[in-house]
Amino acid sequence: MPDTEKPASAGKEQPRRRQARGERRIAQLLQAAASVFCTSGYSAASTNAIAREAGVSPGTLYQFFPNKEAIAIELGDQLMHRMRETYGEALAPVDPATPLEEAVAAAVDRFIAFNTEHPVFFTLMHGTDIPGRIAEEHDALHSTLVGRIEGLLSSLLPDTPQDVVTRTAHVCLGIYKAGLELVLTHEGAEREAYVQEVKNVLIRYLEPLGGDRLGRA
């Protein structure tokens, strides 16, 4: 009789294909959820609306996520990971000789790019009734961001007392967050103008702390 036995690799290939299809479906659902959350807000969004945006049935959605909160948590986890990569690059200590304007512009540009590429991040982090786990992650991210801003400021202002650096870091993050909401509600040249205003406010706030040493380029 001819040997009809399938090679061992064939059996392994089938689960891999199923896993790849599942990962693509999850990515599709998360992308749809991001769109719905941005349009409707987290509170008003529904699993039916997310399934409709993804072009699948609610039953298909429930194969991967039990409810809207689980979708938001998965989306938030992914965005948190990407944000941590962004602030790691944006808030690395710099050469003390770096002009203030250059250091501020580099940091702001990276954060603005992330938030304009992922507008749902702002929706999830600042919306009402967001899942408790996301709120906790956001609080932890806020603390970490303040710490990284302190590190950046310490490299620019090495003689500044630590309590002043910490307070300044909190104010800088508050200024950025307030400006971000304005940036995200505008597009094109008007958005760029608001980005520049955020940079200008930060620069004018920080300049007196460093005196002439932090002069513009």
Rank of each mutant, 00 (worst) to 15 (best):
M1P: 10
P2W: 08
A8H: 11
S9R: 14
K12P: 00
E13T: 12
Q14G: 05
R16G: 11
R16L: 15
Q19H: 14
G22R: 02
G22E: 01
A27P: 05
Q28R: 15
A32H: 12
C38R: 15
S43T: 13
S43N: 07
A44Q: 11
A44I: 01
A44S: 10
S46Y: 03
S46W: 02
T47V: 11
N48S: 15
G55A: 04
Q63N: 14
F64H: 15
F65N: 09
N67G: 09
N67I: 00
K68T: 06
A70M: 04
Q78R: 14
Y87A: 00
A90I: 07
A90M: 05
P93E: 00
V94W: 03
T98L: 13
V104C: 08
V104P: 05
A105T: 12
A106Q: 10
D109A: 13
A113M: 01
E117D: 11
P119V: 07
H126M: 01
T128Y: 12
T128K: 12
I130P: 02
I130H: 02
I134W: 04
D139P: 02
A140P: 07
G151I: 00
S155N: 00
T160A: 14
Q162T: 09
T166W: 04
T168C: 08
G174F: 09
Y176W: 10
V183Q: 04
V183R: 05
A189W: 06
R191G: 03
L202Y: 01
I203L: 05
I203D: 03
L206C: 06
E207W: 14
E207G: 12
G211V: 06
G211N: 05
R216W: 14
R216Y: 14
A217I: 01
